[in-house]
Design a protein around this nucleic acid. Structure first.
Lengths: 417, 417
DNA sequence: GCATTTCGCTCAATCCCTGAACTAATTTGA
DNA sequence: TCAAATTAGTTCAGGGATTGAGCGAAATGC
């Protein structure tokens, strides 16, 4: 009987203040009469509710707007900087923390190098950066969202496993909450970047949207109904371990022919090296690397691509085609309105993106392609930390007048699907 | 500015009656005090709200329940049969319509053979069956959900294209509404079956859940948060056209190596035939079909599998392995709690299901497998019509006291993602 | 200047919801 | 056996939220 409740959609009754708050945040600018129309509340009630929000500082009156006829409107403007949130993101040895407003727009950032790869090093770096930002924050900070390296439990409290850092069951949220005294929510760093794209930049508000990070790993963040989709155990979006060639090379996960073995920084460099070895030396890259193929980096590949090196373009096209195949399968299943590609490999540019698009167009269904755009990330490296902040903002159905999350939300209890 | 609103989650304020109604429907049996606890309303309010629902006939008092201490509770029971809905489903030339209660439990069914394959034949068959059921319904009927053959627009009004029936842009919902005078909502017949499994039978309330129909086509219905997931253009779940062998056989969709070319009634029969031709004649099937391989049917294959025919088991294992590969990719992306397999091929039984499971276990990530069950349909052919009824019930946030859908819902305006 | 239109405020009336007190029904244990 | 304790559900007055109607303000157009 109780387990039926799990399926129960949130039945919390929204207050009028909640409704108006949300409308103001999404509309950014409106008038009292417009809010009354949209919410179905009377103008009388709207006057009262807006008065409350004005007093709390969430809204301000921003001049007047003349109409064709009649008295001009008083423009109401949401004030996103009345409350702030922190978003943290880890990439290699660099920890980036941003301070954003309620639109998830970054207002300040702090960067720390990790001293090592233990959870304590991570916590120390985040806390140092967070305290630096806190000192310069001009408004209450509501909490911290974290884009964590590795798998995160569906409730957003623990890193269950992190391969690159060798972590297992690290209760990162609790550790950070204890140190910072702020509510903390975790999600995978690549998945969180999807939220960044949806909250900020030119792709904002597109839904459903899939963000795919292509770097040393490949992970998809799926946004449905404005929220990150986690699945049953928080593992949704593991695109890197989708099978592309049933009898392909063995992957670290135990499967054979995973996308990961065919498309990743390492796979791309391996492919370029193989082509160089087999080539007649006409590629400029031969001189670049001076015969030391082991020293070939992604930066070199990128430069070569920009200079139109045919050998590199060929390697990128092959790599892109494999990703395109995986994406064709993904879009046939999920039918998103947009796929955003982020990470170091898509950053190389159209030389990689166009082969991806070509393969998707070749393989995906017409129905699905009709509503689909495949585009590079609009935020680049910022997508991660901004998305982390958005992860926390996403939980805010309401913000208490005292500047804090209502207790039940602060406890981060509803992190599931 | 207006397009921002698209992302806007439903901000409709639920009334107390709505909240209590939903609680009662999901809990099925409770008490006033329990409802007050769960909803956060006072006992006083609960007395009043329940009185209203009692008067409208949605609830009844069903005896008392003694507690360890204190006054015994009055058991409140949701009365699912106060309002009814219709669910229609088309399979080959047979149109099945069920009359269900508010739990989507079938109370009566009517079956009609289609006279032809035009939309008018379909409309005529549904209407005849619906009128038959309407005559025997003891309560108001709220509407009709339809599991339509082919693709349906995301708003649930039109069949955009149906390959087997040769339809294109048929406004089926409008046609049926005009004939029946009831609200009508459409969705793809295979996807709708997913809702059937979630609303009824032993897999009820499992979330997220993916239902996969494997017959002449392969389509997945994805249920997230208790609702069918449609995607940007209503095409989510096109599992049949996922690429399994990049250089495999050409598919009708234009792509090569689609799952559809490897796993379907036709593909299975083709595989059995090929094996028979290459075999030494030791299979019993050789005599069964008396050399006429063209007459091999799925029924024959099923019987042979039950009798342990090695040749057939091998063909089923190969077919199952291909499906398992596709499902491994699906579960890595969507991470559902359960995959339900329905349709004529899974009906053959464990000889097909076990190879599917084996391949999924071999290829999917550990994280994802931990929370996953792959099971046969609990409802069989009933999943379709029941799911069609559930599609309509899903839209009922509230049911008016007059026994009708509130106008805005009846218009079926919110059919999108 | 005056009719018209639209915005946003005011205010009395009303409706919804709650807290507290109450009745009811039951167990426990002196 | 009866009082105390416990829990369910009702009653009712008080209070806060919401509304409709009306009003003044601010603009346009003739």
């Amino acid at each position: 009987m109780t387990d039926r409740l799990v399926r129960q959609p949130a039945l919390r009754k929204l207050t009028n203040r909640d409704v108006v708050f949300q409308l103001l945040r999404t509309l950014r600018q409106t008038t009292r009469t417009d809010l009354a129309r949209r919410s179905g509340l009377s103008k009388a009630t709207m006057t009262e509710v807006v008065d409350g929000l004005l007093a709390e500082g969430f809204v301000r009156e921003a001049g007047k707007r003349a109409l064709a006829r009649g008295r001009s409107q008083v423009v109401l403007e949401f004030v996103p900087e009345t409350r702030l949130v922190l978003g943290a993101h880890l990439l290699d040895q660099t920890c980036t923390v941003v301070l954003t407003d309620l639109y998830a727009q970054p207002r300040a950032r702090a960067i720390r190098q990790l001293a090592g790869t233990t959870p304590d090093d991570f916590v120390a770096a985040i806390c140092a950066a967070a305290e630096e930002l806190r000192a310069q924050a001009g408004a209450p900070i509501l909490g911290l969202g974290v884009g964590a390296p590795g798998s995160v439990d569906p409730r957003g409290r623990e890193v269950t496993i992190s391969v690159p850092y060798g972590w297992k069951n690290v209760p990162l949220a609790d550790l950070l909450e204890a140190r910072l005294g702020l509510p903390v929510i975790l999600a995978n760093r690549a998945k969180v970047a999807a939220l960044g794209e949806v909250w900020q930049g030119e792709h904002a508000a597109i839904d459903p949207l899939v963000y795919v990070y292509v770097g040393s790993g490949i992970v998809a963040g799926i946004v449905i109904g404005g929220r990150l989709y986690f699945g049953a155990s928080g593992a949704a979006g593991e695109l890197g371990h989708v099978t592309i060639l049933p009898d392909g090379p063995l992957c670290g996960c135990g499967n054979t022919g995973c996308l990961h073995t065919l498309v990743s920084e390492e796979a791309l460099l391996r492919r370029v090296r193989a082509k160089l070895r087999a080539s007649d030396g006409s590629s400029d890259l031969t001189s670049h690397t001076a015969g030391h193929l082991g020293q070939l980096t992604l930066g070199v590949v990128r430069t070569a691509a920009q200079q139109g090196d045919l050998l590199v373009l060929e390697a990128l096209a092959e790599t892109g085609a494999y990703l395109g195949l995986a994406l064709a399968n993904l879009v046939n299943l999920i039918n998103p309105r947009m796929v955003v590609l982020g990470g170091p490999i898509p950053d190389i540019g159209e030389a990689f993106l166009e082969p991806v698009r070509r393969e998707v167009r070749r393989r995906a269904l017409w129905d699905v392609l009709a509503d689909l755009a495949i585009v590079p990330s609009a935020l680049g490296d910022e997508a991660g930390p901004i998305g982390a902040a958005a992860l926390l903002l996403d939980r805010l159905a309401a913000i208490g007048a005292d500047g804090h999350l209502p207790a039940e939300q602060a406890a981060g209890r509803e992190a599931g699907a």
